[in-house]
Write a protein that binds this DNA or RNA. Structure first.
Lengths: 159, 159
DNA sequence: ATTGGTAATGAAAACCATTTTCAATAAGGA
DNA sequence: TCCTTATTGAAAATGGTTTTCATTACCAAT
């Protein structure tokens, strides 16, 4: 069940927040763009449509969207925080990434089978119970070396 | 197969690095302490034994240990990077955490059954093949609300 | 529509974890 | 023991993020 802009607008209003132009523009950029944008990248993209926007506003809007569970925050260790709109409805929100240690590229991998989802659900249930911890969402990160970087290392060794 | 201090010392020397007193003290703190220390926490602990140490040296030593695959770096989004000694030998190094969105507490959960490990291995094999990505290690993070914070929210609502 | 209270905004300054600079120090091979 | 060079620590720089504060503009009530 994908969420349209109206959904977000209603949700923001429901939070007692005002639906301003900068916020709408930021939401548009988030919903259109590919994933994992940094605050500066978002600011830059919004700039092309709404040049008056300040970086500060981007940060503040993102913070609001996060506290309203509309945006998720990622820190992959490359010195800047990244943000992604949560587009899927439902209790199970999950994110899986391959992260290259060499070039820091991030590959999204969404394809999880029913079996795999079932497995994760069972683990979550188990951990929730054991630690009395209410699990809202999860991420799995696989760190390693991507195809391109592996190739470059090999090429270098051949010289 | 746990690794003693000698293992690390030999390894550092093997990297062409000098085995200095600050580095030994930092390794001691890392190997003794509970997990996920920040650079400042490490510096503080080393201080009690070796007061002359500078924060800079802590950062530099950690960087060296990371590039030598002796330490792992985590960023849980609380504004400071955290570090952990890799104590286990072997190809499969994995870390699983419950992270409280409210108080930012991090709970380690190491107990994974053989079934669960097998499942993860199969996923890794699949992803490695599909993306031609060499997976070295992985982390799974479960975000939510811990027992204490859940209780506090409930108590607050009762007022 | 107009108004008024207040949330939101943007520029600049502050913040703060981490990195860099550089002169002084010390590890460890010769 | 000497000498080369990696390492160290203090201070300064860096750079992403947050705070401050005066101005602007939502939007509920009129």
């Amino acid at each position: 069940m994908p969420r349209g802009p109206h959904w977000f607008h209603r949700r923001i209003r429901g939070y007692g927040c005002r639906l301003t132009l900068p916020r709408q523009r930021i939401l548009e950029v988030l919903s259109r763009s590919s994933k994992h944008l940094s605050a500066e990248e978002i600011s830059h993209r919004v700039h092309q449509v709404y040049p008056a926007i300040g970086l500060t506003t981007v940060y503040r809007t993102l913070e609001m969207l996060i506290s309203g569970a509309m945006v998720m925050k990622f820190d992959f260790g490359d010195g800047r925080t990244r943000y992604e709109l949560i587009k899927d409805q439902g209790a199970l929100i999950s994110h899986h990434h391959l992260i290259c240690r060499v070039c820091l590229k991030i590959i999204d991998c969404a394809e999880f089978t029913g079996y795999e989802r079932g497995y994760l659900e069972s683990i979550k249930k188990k951990l929730s119970k054991k630690y009395k911890f209410e699990i809202r969402e999860h991420q799995t990160r696989f760190y390693g070396v991507c195809e391109k970087c592996k190739k470059e290392v090999t090429d270098y060794a051949k010289r």
